[in-house]
């Protein structure tokens, strides 16, 4: 790990990750081997980088700036763990949106698989962020990332153009 202005960055090449039999993430670095958790610090804007690593008691150990250059097995293990912290599915394409008086029913394909979402009116459920990204919140507070308009496929564009 390297200290930079008080923030310990973890060198990608200095650490190895794997999963144990119980599904937990194990980190191995500097001769240490322990159960850790990994969470994304920018799950919407930089979902593939800035991954915070904590020990099992929640004490911060450092931050992985990027997973580039990490050995494939390690990368898969840490990506899968961080994908649940937080769990913020990214909408890849929209198959259908139907409006049923007060509720919008979405059939979407996300990076966590196909899902059905129920939201309130668009003006209350979708927040636009800098850079064109949008955050969709469903009626149970579950949040979903919606990429910028330039990344939508033709079908999604057609669906969203009706409302957005």
């Amino acid at each position: 790990m390297t200290e930079n202005g008080g923030l310990p960055w973890i060198e990608t090449r200095s650490v190895r990750f794997e999963r144990d039999g119980q599904g937990y993430l194990i980190a191995e670095w500097l001769g240490r081997r322990e159960r850790v958790t990994a969470s994304r610090l920018f799950p919407l804007t930089h979902p593939d980088g800035y991954i915070a690593v904590q020990d099992s008691s929640g004490r911060p150990l450092g931050v992985l700036r990027s997973l580039e250059g990490m050995e494939a097995g390690s990368r898969t293990a840490v990506e899968r763990e961080a994908g649940f912290r937080p769990f913020l599915p990214r909408i890849v394409s929209i198959r259908r949106i139907r409006r049923r008086f007060g509720h919008w029913h979405w059939d979407v394909l996300t990076d966590a698989g196909p899902m059905r979402i129920r939201t309130g009116p668009f003006y209350e459920s979708i927040a636009k962020l800098e850079g064109g990204l949008r955050l969709v919140t469903d009626v149970t507070d579950q949040k979903y990332g919606l990429p910028a308009e330039s990344e939508w496929d033709a079908r999604s564009r057609k669906m969203l153009a009706k409302w957005l």
Binding site: G113, P114, M115, R116, I117, R118, D138, T140, Q142
Partner: peptide, 10 residues
């Protein structure tokens, strides 16, 4: 009691 809003399509 709050009904879930999202579910896996399959």
């Amino acid at each position: 009691a709050e009904a879930g809003s999202a579910s896996r399509a399959e």
